[in-house]
Amino acid sequence: MYPPDAPDRGRGEWRWQRYLTNVLDPKRLSIVEVVALYDARWKRETSFLLIKRLLDRRMWVGSQNGIWLQVVATFLMYALLLDLCDDVAQALGVQLEAISVEMVYRGLYHYVWQWHRVSTKETRPAI
């Protein structure tokens, strides 16, 4: 059960969570470990979903080596995006969990456009 003040847990109500496991011996796997495993798995699943949705990577090549290179490049882009989110969180003085990876990614286009506009304006000769 989560307490009412736990983040993202509803409207101040207690909520039961159910976990399914085939390990029934609490000496081998405690409930705390089960919750931690589910949490880690859920984070991986949502990371894959975010990568697929934001980066929208389609396979451009058919060879096994080409596909592998695309997968590695996609995960490298995601790692760089998370690093950028960490920098944004640090600059704002908030926790990384408070930063929306999707909003940072979507804001990159506007940031680069504005940066390009300002940098080309400064290099143009004054008339």
Rank of each mutant, 00 (worst) to 15 (best):
A89M: 02
G107T: 11
T21Q: 03
A79N: 13
P125E: 13
R15Y: 03
S100C: 06
W42N: 08
D86Y: 09
L80F: 11
V94Y: 01
V94M: 10
W16A: 08
M103N: 13
G107K: 09
Y109N: 05
V118W: 09
L84Q: 07
P125Y: 05
V34T: 13
L20M: 09
V112M: 08
R57S: 08
L29D: 05
D8G: 03
S63F: 02
R57G: 02
I99F: 01
T21S: 15
P4V: 11
R15H: 09
V101G: 05
H116G: 03
D8I: 00
M103E: 15
L92A: 13
L81P: 01
G62Q: 10
V71M: 09
G107H: 03
D5W: 07
I99V: 15
P3A: 09
V118A: 12
T21G: 04
S47W: 00
G10R: 11
W42E: 08
G62R: 10
R41V: 00
E102R: 11
Y78H: 13
V61T: 14
R117H: 08
L84N: 00
L29I: 04
Q64D: 12
L20E: 10
R124G: 00
P26K: 02
A89L: 02
L55K: 09
L55H: 05
D39C: 04
Q70M: 08
L76H: 04
D56I: 00
I51V: 15
I51G: 01
L81W: 12
K121W: 15
K43S: 02
H116T: 06
R124F: 05
V118D: 15
A40Y: 01
R106F: 06
T74F: 03
I67R: 14
M1R: 10
D87W: 01
W16S: 05
L92C: 11
V34D: 04
C85T: 05
L80T: 01
A91K: 11
P26E: 09
A89G: 11
R11W: 05
D86C: 04
L54C: 10
A40S: 10
T21E: 04
R58G: 08
